[in-house]
Design a binder for these strands. Structure first.
Length: 101
DNA sequence: CCGCTGACGGCAG
DNA sequence: TCTGCCGCCAGCG
């Protein structure tokens, strides 16, 4: 497996409950400046197998980027259960963004 | 107009 | 059958 992919998985799994990270943020933390696209692919095809907290990953502006309505609703539900306020399909990043040291 | 961002599905191995 | 890598591009603001 690609080293970048390994890092992305590690970063995503490090996001605390009740916190979120954006695609680009994860990519940067994993060592690649423009890898948001790849992060989204990893989320899409490896979330189950690697037990990733996929619901804690949002777009750059705090929106739930998932197209599939059912999955998007599940994400909203999971975030709600972790105490996040989701309004109009978006959360306040200023309040919930997780920034790894 | 223009920069930034990015939950496919296709396909190689 | 299964796993994981991959675009200079569509779409939004």
């Amino acid at each position: 497996m690609d080293s970048f992919t390994v890092e992305v998985i590690r970063v995503i799994r490090s996001i605390p409950k009740g916190k979120v990270m954006t695609y680009g943020q994860i990519s940067a933390a994993a060592g690649r400046a423009r890898g948001a696209r790849q992060v989204s692919r990893i989320l899409h095809s490896m979330s189950q197998k690697y037990e990733l907290p996929w619901h804690r990953v949002l777009s750059a502006d705090g929106k739930l980027k998932i197209r599939d309505e059912e999955t998007r609703n599940e994400q909203m539900e999971r975030l709600y259960e972790e105490g996040l306020e989701v309004q109009n399909g978006r959360v306040n990043l200023e309040e919930y963004r997780y920034e790894p040291r």
